[in-house]
Nucleic acid binder design. Structure first.
Lengths: 125, 125
DNA sequence: CCCTTGTTTCGATGGTTGTCGATACAGACG
DNA sequence: CGTCTGTATCGACAACCATCGAAACAAGGG
């Protein structure tokens, strides 16, 4: 018993558990804000770009690292990066010849905070 | 020390940490699959519908509970429910006069599994 | 200075999507 | 059986979007 009570019969609905999205209805405003993030990730190329950038060494990736991965032209990749940037999911910086992109951790956290079943935010807090 | 080592300086990039999306590049196939889910949630109405259904008493909601929330016609709500259904995020069942929708927990879990920083799956396991 | 390479912007185009009204289907109830 | 209510489908239309080629901008190197 004890801690196993928290698990219960997982998969079925329970009150006062689960992620915020399941616990109570999202307001129109929050839905609008979050859906902008989801929409930006709702394209296979963009989701993969995001993952490529996030997982790249140093936490950042040059555009030149990304274009070769897809069968798409430069302008198209640049367009998708712009969409991700305007959604606040990534940010770009030019250093010399190349432009480097990195993910914005806060944006990803806003999503996981909504989806994740009662995440423990930190160890002490 | 001990547990605080797991927290580190949160927000900055580190190797071998973070969510799957950050830990390694998503494959083209997985990106395509997940982006379908993100895309379905990439509309403010649909995201709110999903949350309304998930948080409704009993874990299910009748369409009649949903239409009044929005300034949209019945066909439009029905269309959005169909998109959510075809994405595998919800399932619907007719019982008598009304049609009841409920969320598919597995679909939500697939998303949180990708976004969540190393979720502990259960207490003992 | 021009040329070369990396990246973005522009304009166009074909495809997708959100929304509606009209209509059809499904049950319940006389 | 007719009718009423709830829900889904259909057809249409405007808006949006992914993609491309062409052109522009940025920076470095002859």
């Amino acid at each position: 018993m004890s801690n196993q009570d928290l698990a219960l019969t997982e998969g079925t609905w329970q009150p006062a558990c689960c992620s915020p999205l399941v616990r109570e209805p999202l307001s129109a405003e929050l839905s609008a804000e979050l859906s902008r993030l989801f929409k930006a990730m709702g394209d296979p190329v963009r989701l993969r770009l995001l993952s490529l950038i996030a997982s790249h060494a140093g936490g950042e990736a040059c555009v030149c690292d990304l274009t070769g991965v897809f069968d798409l032209t430069g302008p198209t990749i640049s367009h998708h990066l712009k969409v991700l940037r305007e959604a606040g999911l990534i940010s770009g910086e030019r250093r010399g010849t190349w432009v480097y992109y990195r993910v914005e951790p806060d944006a990803l956290r806003r999503l996981s905070d909504v989806l994740v079943p009662d995440q423990a935010p930190a160890v002490g807090a």
